[in-house]
C-alpha cells in the first residue's frame, strides 16, 4: 500500500487512535457523574473526529486540504459549545447546588 513517497505511518494508525479516543469519550459521557467531566468527554470526542478529518485530508485530499478547513470549523464550534456549556453548568450549580448528573432530571419525562 505505502510506497517510499507515502508517509511512513499508515492511515489506519491515525484512524485507530481516533477510534479509541472516541470510544473513551463515549464511555465517559455515559458514565460520568460530574457534569464538568461530561463536557470534557465531549471535547475528547470532538478531538477524535478532528483527527479523522485531518488524517483523511492529508492522505486522500493532499492538494485541496478541505479536511483541515473542516477541522478549523469544528474547533470554532467546540469553543463556543464549551463556553455555553460551562455557563449553563454554573447557572445549574447556582440553582441546584450540585454537579451530580443523576440529580439533573428536571427535563426527564
Amino acid at each position: 500500500m505505502s510506497t517510499d513517497l507515502a508517509s511512513p505511518i499508515p492511515l489506519e494508525g491515525f484512524l485507530t487512535v481516533a477510534a479509541m479516543l472516541f470510544c473513551v469519550g463515549v464511555w465517559g459521557l455515559i458514565n460520568s457523574r460530574n457534569a464538568v467531566r461530561v463536557l470534557m468527554s465531549i471535547e475528547l470526542m470532538l478531538n477524535a473526529v478532528n483527527i479523522n478529518l485531518m488524517a483523511f485530508s492529508n492522505y486522500l485530499d493532499g492538494q485541496l486540504i478541505r479536511g483541515q478547513v473542516f477541522a478549523i470549523f469544528v474547533i470554532t464550534v467546540a469553543a463556543a459549545e464549551a463556553a455555553v456549556g460551562l455557563a449553563i453548568l454554573l447557572s445549574l450549580y447556582r440553582n441546584r447546588e450540585t454537579v451530580d448528573m443523576e440529580r439533573f432530571n428536571l427535563l426527564r419525562w
Partner: peptide, 28 residues
C-alpha cells in the same frame, strides 16, 4: 456501556481496515 463502546470500537476498526482507501492520494 463498556461493552457497547468496545463494540463500537470493533466496528470502527473493521471499517478502517477493510475499506479500500484510494491510497496513495495526491501528494500533500
Amino acid at each position: 456501556s463498556g461493552a457497547v463502546c468496545a463494540g463500537l470500537f470493533a466496528l470502527l476498526l473493521r471499517v478502517a481496515f477493510t475499506t479500500a482507501w484510494a491510497l496513495p492520494g495526491p501528494p500533500p
